[in-house]
Design a protein around this nucleic acid. Sequence first.
RNA 1: GCGCCCGUAGCUCAGCUGGAUAGAGCGUCGGCCUUCUAAGCCGAAUGUCGCAGGUUCGAAUCCUGCCGGGCGCGCCA
Length: 585
Amino acid sequence: MNIYNYFNSFIKAEIKELQLKDKLPLDSIIDGISVDPPRQINHGDLACNAAMVLAKKVKLDPISIAKLISKRIITHSDVEKVDIAGPGFLNITLKKNVWHDQLRNVLKAGEKFGDSEIGKGKSINVEYVSANPTGPLHVGHARGAVFGDVLSSLLEKTGYEVTREYYINDAGAQIDILARSLYRRYCEKLGQESYEKPEGFYPGEYLIDLADKLVIKDKKHWLDKPESEWLPELSRYTVDEMMKLIRKDLSDLGIEQSTFISEKSIVERGMVDTVLNMLDEKGLIYTGVLEPPKGMKPESWEERPQKLFRSTSFGDDIDRPLKKSDDSWTYFASDLAYHLDKYKRGFTNLINVWGADHGGYIKRVQAGINALTEGNVNLDIKLCQLVRLLENGEAAKMSKRAGTYVTISELVDYVGRDVVRFIMLTRKNDAQLDFDIIKAQEQSRDNPVFYVQYAHARSYSVERMAKDAFNAQSFDYKNLQKCDLSLLNGSDELALIKLIALWPRIVEMASEAQEPHRIAFYLNELASSFHSLWSKVREDESFRFVVTDNLELTQARLALVCGLRTVISSGLNILGVEPLEELRG
RNA sequence: GCGCCCGUAGCUCAGCUGGAUAGAGCGUCGGCCUUCUAAGCCGAAUGUCGCAGGUUCGAAUCCUGCCGGGCGCGCCA
């Protein structure tokens, strides 16, 4: 438990005591009470709004309530002093040894420091990427992929049991087109061009490569055969091969999902019919005619009765069609079946990571899943906005393999996996992201990946020097845990310890908000704080980490550096970025 | 037309789900290398938090209405 939560519970308990002793009314509200790190340094270590929250319902002024509570808080052995400030804030200053103990906890717990149990006993299904198996992944997919992967790690860090899932859209019409495109390439290989390029032809080079493989595998077997003979087989073959490509791309990014669910298998198991029957039984299906959307030119619009799901009963804007004009299921229908499948596999907490262009789809899926599960499922949908690839501020143009877009493997080859992963998290998921592939490789303050890695590497640099100056054994973790941390009493050192001690809170809040970018921002701040302390020695010799005539002080300072390193490394591990011990070769 | 997202320093963005005097980087200007790696650090200047109302002890944050930008809106997935 982090100290903010700890004091939150403590203060609430004390307030209950006061209520029992009739000092405060019993019905006063405790819910909105929070304990936070204050923004201003002179506001102490913890700021609590309890008095103001209580004053809301009780007809007492906040200041006198604050006085009442502060008398209780001051009895805690960790508390140095309590100030009442502003409109009724309780500003709590903790004894220095509390912070020293926090640092000691980091050294004892190692990377487990920051683990939380807020998700203990809960399982959650995170579905991400789920790109159509029609070609290699591109940059837009990379963002959703990294986001989903890091969100999963973050949830695991806070105790959730996470299933990382990929939904393979291997059933729609675009798969037929893909197979026909491959067939065309196959014919080309064998010197026959009479088979026309199909409508919506996939032009990427990867299909030429695949056609090579197919010729080697099946020789001329499919040549001059009717489509009905080769289409089913080649569809299956192409999807399998595309999924190999995609999984390769994902593994280049360090992503390995445990569960792959095929749309085709959902359909073949009759799940779509099940969904239709369920909705029908609930009276949520009818045949109707949709209005054409206003503001759009309905050129080819023809009014047509179709089978509709009454999603407006569940908060959607219009009712949604389940069947196309050719009587086949819409994507929506099979997607409902897929989500029902998740529920039947035992998941009630679902997260889907989608591209922002699918935003208009959220309400209907939530409506559908609510209808199918009686509201038992909580489905969160995270949208990732576009990524704009830049080269020194100009739009990047480095695409070759896929025809029209930059692929993940091109990007990873160019800047490296760690850079891709980190940069993808330097923006909130729902804000657009500019990814400058030149700047992302710079070794400068501009490049957050470098900046954080540099701080991490510097910690090793200090350790090496300390070990050179004394005997190495004095600095192993066991000895550092036991050393006298009270020697760390400079304001800069204490400030750094406090920032390190913030880590568990950052983790919990990022997890609750489902916002992995907060980890990246925090690491940047932590690195900055360390670089700053590091440079202090230029103004004042006494800031030297390694003090050659003082082993105890050097141990204490190295303990601080190791604590910092542990947190950085633990943060980078959540991001899936490898912490480096040295930056120059 | 409707729905979702966004609007914060010259630029790019944070802002801890309602807290105190709104922050960081870049850029600009001015400092710090006989170095525990200057691949870095320090200082200065910079704001109608899009606009207008509302909710309350307290709003960049929540609600409503505008303005401006992005995405989407049956027979694609």
